Computed example of a mutant assay.
Amino acid sequence: MLDSNRLRRLEQMPLWDFALSFYSAPDVEGACLTLQDTLGIDVCELLFHGWLFVHGLEALSVPLAKQRKEREIWQREVTQVLRHLRRHLKPEAQQSASIDTLRKTIQQAELQAERENLQRWQTWAIENPDDEVRLTNCALISNDVERWLQDRLFFAELDKSCLHASGAREDISSAWQTLASRLDRFESPR
């Protein structure tokens, strides 16, 4: 049975506010980018699961899978296109003020695309027009946060092809540990 108090507290802390606060914690940005660039993890979804976790909630796998597909389309067709353009222009931006301005504009658009994606995750979690049960109480022991995060994102078994690169396994493990420890310490209403 879903705890209505947890859901109410979830509504009082917008996902965007959580994302800004959590992402700015020491080493979180680097950990998120490592997982994004090495494993293809959607940082917005990662932040979504962290937001639910600090409120003692988690998404149920079947409705989550449907929403994940919608969010993947957004990420692929909007956010990743902007990210690719921003990264592609980085060398030129160092040589040209006008390209640097363009790159900064693209960076702002990328941030807005991520904000929109997080808003859609939040709306999905809070609004339930079809009376579909989407969330449940999370009965997680804190020392299992790292494994829980990996399982939420279906990465319990890491892709072996990405781990052959020198140091990749350690970088990925360190990133998961960093995120888990920061979530454990996050000021939560649990």
Rank of each mutant, 00 (worst) to 15 (best):
V62L: 10
R147L: 04
A139Y: 07
T105R: 03
S166C: 07
L10N: 02
A25E: 14
A65G: 07
A180M: 08
T34M: 07
E58I: 08
F48Y: 09
S98W: 07
F18G: 00
S4G: 06
L15N: 02
K69G: 06
I106V: 14
E11K: 07
L15W: 00
S161N: 11
A31L: 11
Q108V: 10
L140E: 01
T38K: 10
L163R: 05
S181M: 14
E11A: 15
D159W: 11
S166Y: 01
A59E: 02
Q75H: 09
L179M: 11
A168H: 05
V133P: 04
C138T: 09
E187N: 15
W176G: 01
V43M: 12
E132W: 14
L82I: 11
R134Y: 02
E114M: 06
A156V: 15
A19K: 02
R134T: 11
L158R: 03
L89P: 01
A93H: 13
D171I: 14
Q108W: 15
F53K: 04
F53Y: 05
D27Q: 12
K160R: 11
A168V: 13
R190C: 02
N128K: 13
A175L: 04
A180C: 14
R76A: 15
L135S: 01
R134K: 05
Q112M: 09
E70T: 07
S181L: 14
R115N: 09
N143Y: 12
